[in-house]
Design a binder for these strands. Structure first.
Length: 906
RNA sequence: GGAGGCAUAGCUCAGUUGGUUAGAGCGCUCGCUUCACAUGCGAGAGGUCGUAGGUUCGAGUCCUACUGUCUCUACCA
């Protein structure tokens, strides 16, 4: 059958050879498509790219917005435009594509919406670096020119990452590609901000925020990373104004003393009660400050005295508010000391620290220096130590937003996979502080607030004002700051679907079905999407959250640039293909756990793909040019019934697992089914028929082979899209594309439990006979005779299988002649005798059978003790008891056989 | 300080409402150019499921404590 894919492939092939494809080439194309067959070796690079082109061209990725139709939708976590594809994206996309392809094949109207993130601070840092190399300072360039550069950057790098994502084979709808700063998303940001502002959920205020002196911007709490560092405790004190005593404390940041406005003790601390209300003098700045009493001070810790710097410490700030203390900032935005620092003004914060310590020592004030490990916060972008600084910033009031967000998860409107991440979520949401959303940057959504220079009014509307609505003044200016990049990401599920424009996409695909991302961005992103969506749309943004872990290297280390242990997905795909990458990342991995991406695993996966390829070649080579019939017209063999039953089991298991988003187990099920059942056994079972002379039997077996292969390809397609499509296009009677084929469904007509059991018994016998051959060193090429005493008469149907799989010259269904020296294989369905003549070693045989008997005895003991337990009989499910009884019977039979054989030998 | 994860074969890890003789890959041993595949085939060795209790007819799985280990979170100056 000529397919669109084959035609396209032929066209591409001709084009590459420099041909123009027109009517004249039709004959050539025809010739090519008729002969189109699988290449001899699996070489993914020869077809993956073409396949993707084909899918795109066919428009399979682009659903129509059909309101009311059963849908399945995912919005991609938008990668930053700063970056390039890394293995984490590979994992993310592998997971999403697997789910999306599965749902699409199940018939859902499926949308996977991709996009990129402007990544305000991250991108700005990069551009500033780039400018620096050119000797340009951001300030000199000016805001407007800088933004031009930024948009250029976006075009260049945003485009690059999209191209790289396509290499993964992701079936996302590129026609709906979004960007956090495109018109649609910016509009959503504006409307959301204005709405929240008007409801009082966004406010401006003086608070302690985390300040990055290099990026020169405020950061949210989530953007600060803490790490333990070696520091010191400097012990010294301030003398009371009357000069009588000195109150001693310890500090890790002596430079902040210049901004001290009090010294605090615990009100219940008898050591200091007499000092409360007195004043002390801060050296260098000679400021007289009070000794105050506040519960915040821990009497047990240090000396029980704390110096209070409201402008540079969050706790001190709170204390300052309670006691109405002055707030004195001693640092500039770049981390140098300001004019309030007296003689230290102008020095870098660390230089000032050094000098202050030296001066304290000189003055004899410093009493003790102690090494001290403490946690220091640093900027998540540039890793500079952040400085807590009091500053006027914009905040989102979190309490009213957190409550419904907690409720939605508690009520099960959103489910986390695995569940434990809900706890992490609650933990954070329940202790959340207001979110600082203003950034002193240029690249991003500018805060839509204008200030009137004449009347001081604050103007926040959906459209830009030209005059002050209060006093009519034209002297208004917009806030200089931009929004935290996560503010726009938080709207992503509904901004991209056009919620604020009332678009059909939103009506057809919202709430989205699943969100898939790494657990490292629960706080940054997942939590914020939930409360933002509940606020804006009144609905949850997604029903399920599927969390995955971090991809690590062979030794379990995080992949990082500095370690140079990262795997470049693009290079990897060029070498192994995307199917191997994806499968290796998913197969056998439990949700939410980190993944070790080791060479072993890669080889194993590549080998599996190769296995699939070659098994398919086996089927297709044999089927080539042969007539096939539908299954219900076939006379099914025992092996056929067995594989169909096993396939049915696989279909059921895989579907159930995929529906629960257990991708790792689903793919493992397929891996085992394909390799250990289909390849290792079924293909071998078919060989006697395929190489036999019965034409009808051959036709029927081929029909089953092709059917099972087809089903396998479809089951495997979500996990390994390319190889499955490539093979599918070569199967007889295939459809247009496997992507749009129906996902296999459980089929009651293909359930043959009894035959299936018989084959399992056959397999058991085969293994035992092979074991004997191996143990006795019978050359694999040597054909031997086998005597079979059947305990299950049906085993007589299996002579061809036994002959083939054990390499026999003959199967005789009777006991071996009395004089023959044989070795016995005792199985459930039969006892087989392998005549080995002088090879038979009596002692070895006794040893072998005794060991087997011990095993069987162990089983009998176990089963008997279970069955003699009244509690088990009374409470265990009936089926389980029945199974146990059947087993006991079986093992008793085996025991009898083994004992009789041992008796003969002795 | 708070929360959570993990501990199963030599290594890396599966094991979802408790229920066959606890699995896989790699590694290891032995044997095979068997006409889809040596990126392969066949056979095999290897685990008292971290420790101690408890619940149960039944525990790798549930509960408690402990030990070791990792992560997140808080930020006691």
């Amino acid at each position: 059958m000529k397919s669109n894919y084959a035609v396209m492939k032929a066209e591409l092939c001709l084009e590459r050879q420099g041909f123009f494809v027109g009517r004249k080439q039709l004959e050539t194309v025809k010739k090519y498509t008729e002969k189109y067959m699988l290449e001899k070796t699996y070489n993914p690079t020869t077809f993956e790219h073409d396949l993707y082109y084909f899918w795109m061209k066919q428009g399979y990725f682009t659903p129509k917005a059909e309101i009311g139709k059963p849908y399945f939708s995912i919005v991609s976590p938008p990668p930053n435009i700063t970056g390039q594809l890394h293995i984490g994206h590979g994992l993310d996309n592998a997971i999403m594509d697997t789910i999306v392809r599965f749902k699409r094949m199940q018939g859902f109207n499926t949308l996977w919406l991709p996009g990129t993130d402007h990544a305000s601070i991250a991108t700005e840092v990069k551009i500033v670096e780039q400018l620096k190399k050119e000797g340009i300072d951001k300030r000199d360039l000016g805001r407007e020119k800088f933004l031009e550069r930024a948009w250029q950057w976006k075009e260049q790098y945003g485009g690059r990452i999209v191209e790289q994502l396509k290499k993964l084979g992701s079936s996302c709808d590129w026609s709906r590609l979004s960007f956090t700063m495109d018109e649609k998303c910016s509009e959503a940001v504006r409307k959301q901000f204005v709405s929240m502002y008007k409801k009082g959920l966004i406010y401006r205020g003086n608070r302690i925020i985390n300040w990055c002196p290099v990026c020169k911007t405020a950061l949210s709490d989530a953007e600060v990373e803490y790490s333990e560092q070696d520091g010191y405790f400097w012990h010294y004190g301030y003398t009371t104004s009357d000069g009588k005593t000195t109150v001693t404390f310890a500090t890790t940041r002596p430079e902040t003393m210049l901004g001290d406005t009090a010294v605090a003790v615990n009100p219940n601390d008898p050591r200091y009660t007499h000092l409360v209300g007195k004043t002390v003098i801060v050296p260098f700045v000679n400021r007289e400050i009070p000794v105050i009493a506040d519960e915040y001070v821990d009497m047990e810790f240090g000396t029980g005295v704390v110096k209070i710097t409201p402008a540079h410490d969050p706790n001190d700030f709170e204390v300052g508010v309670r006691h109405n203390l002055p707030v004195i900032r001693v640092m500039n935005d770049d981390g140098t000391m300001n004019e309030n620092a007296g003689e230290f003004a102008g020095l870098d914060r660390y230089e000032a620290r050094k000098r202050i310590v030296a001066r304290l020592k000189e003055m004899g004030i410093l009493q003790k220096v102690e090494p001290h490990k403490h946690n220091v916060g640093s900027c998540y972008r540039c890793h500079t130590t952040v400085e807590p600084i009091v500053s006027k910033q914009w905040f989102v009031k979190m309490q009213p937003l957190a409550e419904p967000a907690i409720k939605a998860v508690r009520d099960g409107e959103i489910t986390f996979h695995p569940e434990r991440f809900a706890k992490t979520y609650f933990n954070w949401m329940e202790n959340i502080k207001d979110w600082c959303i203003s950034r002193q940057l240029w690249w991003g959504h500018r805060i839509p607030v204008w200030y009137c220079e004449d009347c001081g009014a604050e103007i926040c509307e959906e459209t830009d004002p030209t005059v002050c609505p209060k006093c009519g003044s034209e002297h208004i200016h917009q806030d200089e700051d931009v929004l935290d990049t996560w503010f726009s990401s938080a709207l992503w599920p509904f901004s991209t679907l056009g919620y604020y424009r009332g678009s059909d996409d939103f009506k057809a695909f919202f709430p989205t079905s699943v969100l898939s991302c790494g657990y490292d961005i629960i706080f940054f992103w997942v939590a914020r999407m939930i409360f933002s969506s509940l606020y804006a749309t009144g609905q949850v943004p997604f029903r399920h959250v599927l969390m995955h872990g971090i991809v690590r290297d062979e030794q379990g280390r995080k992949m990082s640039k500095s370690l140079g242990n990262g795997v470049d997905p693009v290079e990897f795909i060029d070498k192994y293909g995307t199917d191997t990458l994806r499968f290796a990342l998913i197969n056998g991995v439990a949700n939410g756990s980190d993944i070790r991406f080791a060479p072993d695993k890669i080889d194993g996966t590549r080998n599996f793909m190769n296995k699939v390829w070659n098994a398919s070649r086996f089927v297709l080579m044999n089927a080539e040019g042969k007539a096939l019939v539908p299954l219900d017209e076939c006379k099914l063999t025992l092996a056929d019934k067995w594989i169909l039953t096993k396939l049915n089991d696989a279909v059921q298991t895989v579907t159930e697992l995929l529906e629960k988003y257990e991708l790792g187990m689903a793919s493992q099920t397929l891996y085992d089914f394909v390799w250990s059942e289909f390849c290792d056994w079924y293909i071998e079972f078919t060989k006697p028929v395929l190489y036999g002379t019965d034409e009808i039997a051959r036709r029927d077996t081929l029909s089953v082979l092709c059917y099972v292969l087809d089903e396998i390809l479809k089951l495997l397609h979500p996990f390994a899209p390319c190889i499955t499509e490539e093979i599918y296009q070569s199967t007889p009677n295939h459809g247009e594309s496997i992507m749009i084929a129906r996902f296999p469904e459980y089929d009651q007509a293909h359930c043959f439990a009894d035959d299936c059991n018989l084959v399992e018994e056959l397999k058991e016998l085969v293994t035992k006979i092979r074991n004997i051959r191996s143990e006795y060193g019978v050359a694999p090429s040597k054909r031997i005779r086998l005597y079979v005493a059947a305990t299950d008469e049906r085993i007589r149907q299996c002579d061809v299988y036994l002959t083939k799989l054990c390499n026999l010259e003959e199967v005789v269904f009777e006991s071996a002649p009395a004089g023959d020296k044989t070795v016995k294989a005792v199985g459930t369905a039969a006892t087989c005798e392998v005549p080995l003549g002088d090879l038979v070693d009596k002692d070895k045989e006794i040893e072998r059978l005794t060991k087997e008997l011990e095993n069987v005895n162990g089983e009998i003991t176990r089963a008997e003790s279970k069955l003699s337990n009244p509690g088990f009989l009374a409470k265990a499910p009936a089926q389980l008891v029945e199974n146990e009884k059947a087993k006991l019977t079986k093992y008793r039979d085996l025991k009898a056989q083994l004992e009789s054989r041992l008796g003969e030998l002795k």
